[in-house]
Amino acid sequence: MGDEFEPKILGFTCNWCTYAGADLAGTSRIQYPPNIRIIRVMCSGRMDPMFVIKALTNGADGVFLGGCHPGDCHYTKGNYYARRRINALREILKAFGLDERVRLRWISASEGPQFAEEVTKMVEDVKKLGPNPYKEETL
């Protein structure tokens, strides 16, 4: 691998859709970069902006959030709250130049390839952005 920058991506996925999508990517043996670590929550509605900020200040180079497609939420509408919240957070992150490091995607249980694809894309994009500039300062 050499000295190439390998970003650390923290993932939050809901239990019902995106987590299962990642499972399907696994069952189908679709290879994707190993940079992501997933924390499972029950619903994307549980994704607290505080988690995202903590992750970024803790040294994550990117945060990937995954939930059910609109209208398909296991809990009816948690994903709508997630979307609203993350959009608001993004506005704030813009001020710090961190908004591109946070990504919210809808991936269903049957979308294994999409999961692998999105993670691959995210890793590539964060590689281009370089390391998270706030990593050191907060230590």
Partner: peptide, 21 residues
């Protein structure tokens, strides 16, 4: 047990058990 309320509570007064902050 979706936990949506826990992340929205402005006072952080709600805990989502097993998925606590």
């Amino acid at each position: 047990g979706c936990g949506t309320c826990a992340s929205l509570c402005p006072s952080s007064a709600i805990r989502h058990q097993f998925f606590e902050d």
